[in-house]
Simulated assay, not measured.
Amino acid sequence: MSDVIEVRGLRKEFTVRVKTGRLRRTKKVVAAVDGVDLTVARGEMIGYIGPNGAGKSTTLKMLTGVLMPSAGEVRVCGLVPVAQRTRLALRIGVVFGQRSQLWWDLPLRDSFDLLRHIYRVPAADHAARLRRCRDLLDLDGFLDTPVRQLSLGQRMRGELTAALLHGPEVLFLDEPTIGLDLVSKQAVREFLGELGRAGDTTLLLTTHDLADIERLCRRLVVIDHGRVVHDGDIEALHARYGSRRLVVVDLDEPLTEVPVLPGAPVLRVEADGRRLVFELESATAGAVVARLAGLATLRDIAIVEPDIEDVVSRLYRTPAPPVVVPAHPIPTQNPEPASRPDLTGTP
């Protein structure tokens, strides 16, 4: 598989004013993204997560050509995002949870038709893609409703459709399920899962809802203080930060003494001693249950898989290396064009 996203040493700096006295403010250079390296193969589904202010949205804006990098090399679909923004816009789709690409006062159907003309999509291709989205996202009930009258969940389904009607190679999703109710979240997740399984579109997803990551993405990239601190699958993240399975055992009667089991320390004792929670380090769940069965009458047993939210929060608590800002600006390899390209122009 060829790489559709190639990033080397990506950096973005902002100058902010910091209060240093009652009336004085001084300028300070802040690196929102600090030396990110990333490659994404065609058809991959990537979860790109981090705490607030980590640099997630800034990275996406540089990948889509909205922001000019301060330094580093970026190519998406073989194109330099800012310098070739018009051509890139025809090959990517973008969904920002807090922004809309739909016409507020027009029926949803008319927004889709306008986008077909903007992207110059053949009518047959547009109809086929719209039909697929209508089926998977259940759009028929509100296609003729003005966008301003749609619920948040309905509008998000419309945003996803609008981002896919021109057949993008890469879909960038920034908080696509933010604020949605459970039913709408499930509909969006199922649609994205179906899209990912088809393998035609590369997905890069940023979210604070880690359930989205667990259900959709095999690969997880974690960014903190502008730097990538983990790039791998979720299992590797659990292994790296010590997240382990738990064995929860309910007893008929509490034991007079909490047992010490090799490779499975007791994490906590609950319910007046009738519930013991063991953390599996090197022991197996079967060995723990067998040992306890010889000591007491077991009422119930449960094996709890590690929670990704716990391991990610543990990762965020790990001190980040200090960010050193150079005294002199780093020259960018992608000079900004004299004028910003028109997204509706001819590629």
Rank of each mutant, 00 (worst) to 15 (best):
M1P: 15
D3A: 15
K19A: 05
K19M: 05
G21L: 06
G21K: 06
T26N: 08
T26M: 06
A32D: 10
V33Q: 08
L38E: 04
L38H: 03
A41I: 04
M45L: 09
M45N: 02
I46C: 02
I46N: 03
G47L: 02
I49A: 04
G50L: 11
N52K: 15
K56A: 09
L63F: 00
V66R: 02
P69E: 00
S70C: 09
R75A: 14
P81E: 04
R85C: 13
T86C: 08
G97K: 08
G97E: 09
Q98I: 10
W103F: 14
L108D: 09
L108W: 12
D113Q: 14
L115F: 13
I118M: 14
Y119S: 00
Y119C: 00
H126Q: 08
A128R: 15
L130S: 01
L130D: 03
C133T: 07
C133R: 09
C133Y: 10
L136I: 15
L136S: 11
L136C: 03
L137M: 06
D144F: 04
R148N: 10
Q149S: 12
S151Y: 12
L152A: 02
M156F: 08
E159M: 02
D174R: 00
E175F: 04
E175R: 06
G179M: 09
L182R: 10
K185H: 06
A187R: 15
R189V: 13
E194W: 12
L195N: 06
A198F: 05
A198P: 06
T202G: 03
L203W: 01
L205R: 01
T206S: 11
H208M: 11
L216Y: 02
L216G: 04
C217P: 06
R219W: 01
V222M: 13
H225M: 06
V229R: 15
H230L: 12
I234P: 04
E235D: 14
R244A: 05
R245K: 13
D250S: 14
L251Q: 12
L251G: 07
D252V: 12
E253V: 14
P254D: 13
P254N: 14
T256Y: 03
E257I: 11
V258C: 03
V260F: 03
L261N: 10
P262K: 10
P265W: 01
R268I: 07
A271G: 01
A271C: 00
R274P: 14
R275D: 01
L276T: 07
V277A: 07
F278T: 10
E279K: 08
L280P: 01
S282W: 02
G286K: 14
L292P: 03
L292C: 04
A293R: 13
G294Q: 07
T297G: 04
L298S: 07
D300T: 09
I303L: 12
V304L: 13
E309R: 09
E309M: 05
V312Q: 07
I330T: 14
N334G: 08
E336Q: 12
P341H: 06
G345E: 11
P347N: 10
